[in-house]
Design a binder for these strands. Sequence first.
DNA 1: CAACAGGATTAGT
DNA 2: ACTAATCCTGTTG
Length: 321
Amino acid sequence: MGSSSPPSTPFCLHYFDMLYSEDVAWAAKGMGETSQSGVPGGRGEVKKEPEQCPIIDSQGLGLGGDGELQGELPLEEHSLEQMQSMVVGEVLKDIETACKLLNIAADPADWSPGNVQKWILWTEHQYRLPQLGKSFQELSGKELCAMSEEQFCQRSPVCGDVLHAHLDIWRSAAWMKEKAAPGDVRYCGSDSGWADSEVDSSCAGQPIHLWQFLKELLLKPHNYGRFIRWLNKEKGGWALLGSGEGSVGGSPQTSHPHSPHIGIFKIEDSAQVARLWGIRKNRPAMNYDKLSRSIRQYYKKGIIRKPDISQRLVYQFVHPL
DNA sequence: CAACAGGATTAGT
DNA sequence: ACTAATCCTGTTG
């Protein structure tokens, strides 16, 4: 109650204009490696990487069901509006995804200092921002929201402005969500109710398990496919796993009537997956060595195993639930 | 060298 | 009690 939060942010379109040009497009471009080498002065110019976007196509960019703006439409004014609302939808979905992954509220005003830290770490990670250190420690969400862009830059001269813009987007999204509940509207099933029903996989604040976390990442190839992905598609890849030659290993042991090649996933970027896990669990020292040890504990529990044809960074869920 | 396998111990719930 | 974090020794491709 009393939360007379000043809706100072009217959710103008400039934000999403900016967001689209800088964040979404940038992030969607696969954002190559370019660690932090490409973030010198901040937002002067968005350097357009010549890379094509390999993964965003899955289902992210429009063509959700009506628009065939695959690239031949001349982008009329109407299309522009459509484009904008589409981008807004994508941003809202990404925020929802991040909320579940980090286990934090959607509204920044509800964040604890720990939540703030998580959000900052995640934003750094997601958008390849330079490390902020602990310049925003001990700040609650409300305090964070009360800070001006100047204050952000004061704490982080390098990317305070970008961070502030990201926070503005989250606040705007939360503001929209609140506004979108005028009367009843019990989250009409249209939009995958993004209410705080907590993560489906972890009930009642029970600490999340590593295998659940991995499945959550795997559920969002749009967001995390660069780090971890299913390896089941396209049976083409499986044939030439032996790299050609017969390689008479000796025991063919092609038995295993059950347990086909389903539920197999590959960790493409072990360091990043470990980092996300560390953010989620508030374990800054997490690394793949330790994460993989936890995965190995699943062997005897029958949750995860190594596939029949063992490969580096490839594991398999025993229960394809 | 990085991934892999697992034993032992500690930490957090 | 259980899961996971940490740490470690040793193996493997």
